[in-house]
Nucleic acid binder design. Structure first.
Lengths: 204, 204
DNA sequence: GCAGGGTGTTGCACCAAGTGCAAGTAATCG
DNA sequence: CGATTACTTGCACTTGGTGCAACACCCTGC
């Protein structure tokens, strides 16, 4: 029994298992990103990644649900974080304002600009990657919808009101466009400025 | 050597081959859509479709590049049609106006409402379908960008200006949302009205 | 130290989507 | 009718992904 490990409180030793797991996870990610950068996303097979990382193919799928997941990271968790940031914004802020501020948390200190640029490049020439990414944004739509509906003063009735989702979808589209433009600029442009420019164009 | 069939002028007999090809194409589509409706998109295999349509699995992929293509039709050609409609709009129209009118051509007489509703339903529970659809919209972005840039008065310089793409992406997002809402309403709501409501919310 | 349970790892068999190739077959043209 | 051309098909193969069962490992209780 022991249920869930009760030594969770010590932060430096969150179970040896957890530590090794994270280490393996990180090593697979590093190896895979290196291979992707070298030969492209599509041209790299899971077998290659597994071999290079010193694990079996089967174990790879134990750590990642799909090849795309290595690049995308845990967009699910990221989405929840953005949603939390969104709900933490004052209720007086408009939907667009709140979304803008919440999305800015994506540009936190943990996101490395260099690898970010690399990843953005991969999205450019890997359709399957792009597709999965867009799919995740659909999930985000659902995640953010309640808050945005509240800000619009929409009672969550049975009628599927398209307004909240439209705003969220537009904002995420602007985000993608901004990241694209940022990548096209070689990382020199300011992502937030690009996002604001995109939003301004849409709402002009 | 005949080059490209020179009897293209006679519309009723565009080569027996072409006729049979179209017929087979249509039959595969019908068969597949029926199977998809019965057991769902993901649960239906290409082998099943091929068997039910009376052709070999290999021939299926001769007619369609992927299973998704059966549902999506030729979005490439459709995109070009919308682009043509877009470029045919008066230059005085704003980007949003022109896009709205151009997208309305999607709702032409050839699109059947019943099967349209069915297809919209499939998108709801087939992630891979949705993903490919979104991917196609990215292609549309590139397709429409020149015209929208012209309307915005942007000189197509080397700097990747995000404005045109942002507007297009937002419009397509509104379109998807509208179709979603239309599907959710069981086909009772007016798609154009839903689209306008979505756009109004975004630009409010 | 040793037995036992839970967890991670691995190999294996399997499925489904695609693709390239080569042989067979039917339609088209001279 | 004969030659060419296009379509169909089967086959083998690649790749991503999953379920299952055996194995190894580590931590714990005795």
């Amino acid at each position: 029994m022991g249920k869930i490990c009760l030594m969770d409180s010590t932060p430096d030793t969150p179970t040896l298992r957890e530590r090794t797991r994270r280490a393996v996870h990180a090593e697979i990610t590093d190896t895979a990103l290196r291979l992707f950068a070298e030969q492209g996303f599509d041209a790299t097979t899971v077998d290659q990644i597994a071999a290079a990382a010193g694990i079996s193919r089967r174990s790879f799928f134990h750590y990642f649900g799909s090849k795309e997941d290595v690049v995308m990271g845990d967009l699910e968790a990221l989405g929840r974080r953005v949603r939390d940031a969104l709900e933490a914004r004052p209720a007086t802020e408009s939907a667009w304002e709140a979304l803008r501020e919440a999305l800015k948390t994506l540009q936190g200190p943990d996101t490395d600009a260099v690898t970010g640029l690399e990843i953005a490049g991969m999205y450019a020439d890997a359709p399957s990657l792009r597709a999965k990414h867009l799919e995740k944004h659909l999930r985000w739509q659902e995640l953010f919808a309640p808050d945005i509906e509240r800000r619009l003063g929409i009672t969550p009735g049975p009628t599927a009101d398209p307004r909240a989702r439209a705003i969220i979808a537009a904002a995420l589209a602007c985000l993608d466009i901004a990241v694209d433009a940022w990548h096209a600029s070689g990382g020199t442009a300011d992502p937030v400025e690009l996002f604001d420019a995109a939003v301004a164009a849409v709402r002009a």
